[in-house]
Computed example of a mutant assay.
Amino acid sequence: MSMPPQPQGNPYASAPPQGNPYATPHAPYGQPQQQPHYCQHPHPAAGYGQPMAGVPQVPACRVCASYPAAEVTIRGHVGMLIMMRFQKWPGPYCRTCGTAMRREATTNTLWQGWWSPFSMVIFNPYTIISNLVVRGKLNKLPEPGPAPYGARPDPGKSVLQRPAAYVALLPILWFLFLIVRGG
């Protein structure tokens, strides 16, 4: 009787896939897996999740995966007496999700962003103006289609209807008081 031949090569190498022939391959350990930045779910223009040649890819919202979405960056700023914290949330966002995130970030910036000298003069006004530009881009988008992966955040009240936004009046009034009293 003869012995069966011994396998050659690496005995720990991955075997061919068994079971589900439609399973997606995974990246080897130690290599980062690329996350799709644009819409990869079934899309009428792309067809079954695969991009078609010559068809422009439509960015999908990073929150609810609906489209159309705009490539925008929503910013926030927190000014502390000595330190500062800069926040940003890059898009793409649909109109509804972007509006909700922008309103929340701007409201937090209006009450948390004025509490250091550089924040009061430079960084907080820049953040507020940047979010106003984002507002203009988001308002140009049509209402998004249905959210394929769940519910969208509620945009809630506008920034000026939120009480926390009026905390910004305290440092502004204090600054004006110093100018009037000093002159």
Rank of each mutant, 00 (worst) to 15 (best):
A15S: 15
P28T: 05
K137V: 00
Q33T: 15
Y67E: 09
M84K: 10
R102D: 05
N108T: 00
C61I: 02
A105H: 12
P153K: 07
V134S: 13
W114L: 01
P125W: 03
M84Q: 12
V167H: 04
P36T: 09
C94E: 06
G91V: 02
A105L: 06
I172H: 08
G30C: 01
S130G: 14
Y12I: 08
Q31L: 13
N10L: 14
A15Y: 06
I122D: 04
S158A: 07
I179N: 14
L178W: 10
L132W: 06
Q40P: 08
M101I: 14
A46Y: 08
H26A: 12
L141M: 05
H37G: 13
M120A: 15
S158L: 03
P144W: 08
Q87Y: 06
L176I: 12
F123G: 00
P21A: 04
A46F: 08
T24K: 15
G98P: 11
Q34G: 13
R162I: 00
T109E: 04
Q6W: 12
M80D: 10
A23V: 05
V180W: 12
L160H: 11
S116I: 00
Y12W: 14
R135S: 07
M1Y: 10
H41P: 01
Q34H: 12
Y67Q: 13
H77A: 05
P148V: 03
S119A: 15
P17N: 02
G76A: 14
M80N: 14
W115V: 00
T106V: 09
D154S: 06
K137F: 00
V63F: 11
A168I: 01
P32I: 03
H77Y: 14
Q35D: 01
G150C: 00
Q8T: 13
N10S: 15
